[in-house]
């Protein structure tokens, strides 16, 4: 399927209905510039996303966006972090191979000398009860948008 992002970019993606379990004990850590372009990614990010480090650096974070994620969820994320606040949420991420993995994500704005310079994001293992609840919630949100 083709997916189009908010900046007008689009690409063809493969969707595979297979969840890759989030490993115990790992944290995915990344940083982006103010437009969401990845500037730092740790090894856990490389392993879970299926992309190489070279592929991740310089690419917009939205390549991880799974089409099951409602646009409103990311709207809330950007509204929150642009206002200088921390955002928490549960996110279904798209891997390079088309499979997916769920995370509990936290994003904070990076302020240097009073100016916003980018964002730091940490993702960790979510509980199954939160994944089940968010799967239902996001499906409902997507249906509401279509109707």
């Amino acid at each position: 399927m083709f997916i189009t992002y908010h900046d007008g970019a689009s690409r063809e993606i493969t969707i595979v209905d297979r969840e890759v379990p989030y490993p115990d004990g790992k944290l995915i850590v990344s940083r982006t510039d103010i437009s969401g372009v990845i500037t730092h990614a740790n090894q856990a990010f490389v392993e879970m996303s299926g992309y190489s480090l070279d592929e991740l650096i310089g690419t917009n974070h939205y390549i991880l966006r799974h089409p099951d994620m409602p646009a409103a969820a990311f709207g809330d994320l950007w509204d929150t972090i642009k206002s200088g606040k921390k955002w928490h949420g549960y996110v279904k991420n798209l891997r390079k191979d088309g499979a997916y993995y769920w995370v509990k994500a936290t994003v904070i704005p990076n302020i240097r000398n009073g100016e916003l310079t980018g964002y730091t994001s940490v993702r960790r293992k979510p509980s199954r009860s939160k994944v089940v609840a968010c799967t239902l919630l996001y499906a409902q949100m997507n249906m509401d948008v279509q109707s």
Binding site: H40, K86, I108, T120
Partner: peptide
């Protein structure tokens, strides 16, 4: 140092 502080704030 800034990254360390951001990381702790995130966690």
């Amino acid at each position: 140092t800034d990254f360390m502080i951001d990381l702790i704030d995130t966690l």
